[in-house]
Design a protein around this nucleic acid. Structure first.
Lengths: 103, 103
DNA sequence: ACATCAAATAAGTCTGTGCTTATGTATTGA
DNA sequence: TCAATACATAAGCACAGACTTATTTGATGT
């Protein structure tokens, strides 16, 4: 489960798909655009992301809309939290990042 | 770089090694214990974790001590922060934590 | 210098996985 | 009902990567 999550993120194409979906929901076909892969390849990547709870699907007639599933992100946040003892060294960098994101 | 990070975490044995090191520094030999893998396998995993900035090494005579490198964790935190729109409650918790650390 | 020990690297094998083309499954509208 | 569209699944191929044994590198102590 945690394994599916990290395995899903290990592939750069899947991370690219995830980032696209983070900007808003897309149909499976739209996800594929600009990635230079076949339709089945995109479908397989989406299946892997679904298994990892990083995205979820929603039928819209003939189309299938995909969107970010917060569950996967929460799992990563949970994993990361286990090691927060090691964060202090990087607190400043993190703060800068969060501040930057506020704008 | 971000790729090395997620690829490193995609392997369960490497995550196990990382968790062991999160409890405190260990020599390469000690890392291997209980994992049921050969010495070279452990060495290769440690090399992958090093490349991902998840661990760092320190020569101690004939031994090499490994410990968690906060850089890798910070990279994950940074990646995760990009998607904070999908987990508002948790980012607030992180911000609170950072604020708390200021004192 | 040499034997010993810790760890890294080399080389080869075998499994996993990301891709492709071909085909199947839903859903829509004529 | 039938053709067209959107996506998923099947099957096979080629490469990546996790393991092994064998060897090399580096450090210590006699």
């Amino acid at each position: 489960m945690e394994n599916e999550l990290f395995k899903a993120l290990a592939d750069p194409t899947r991370r690219a798909i995830f980032e696209k979906l983070a900007n808003g929901p897309l149909n499976a076909g739209a996800v594929r655009e600009g990635l230079g892969i076949s339709q089945p390849a995109a479908s397989q990547h989406l299946a892997a992301l679904r298994k990892a709870k990083l995205v979820r699907e929603e039928r819209r007639g003939r189309f299938v809309q995909y969107e970010v599933d917060p569950d996967g992100l929460a799992l990563i946040a949970g994993w990361l939290a286990k090691y927060r003892a090691y964060w202090p060294a990087r607190v400043d960098a993190l703060k800068a990042l969060l501040k930057e994101m506020d704008q």
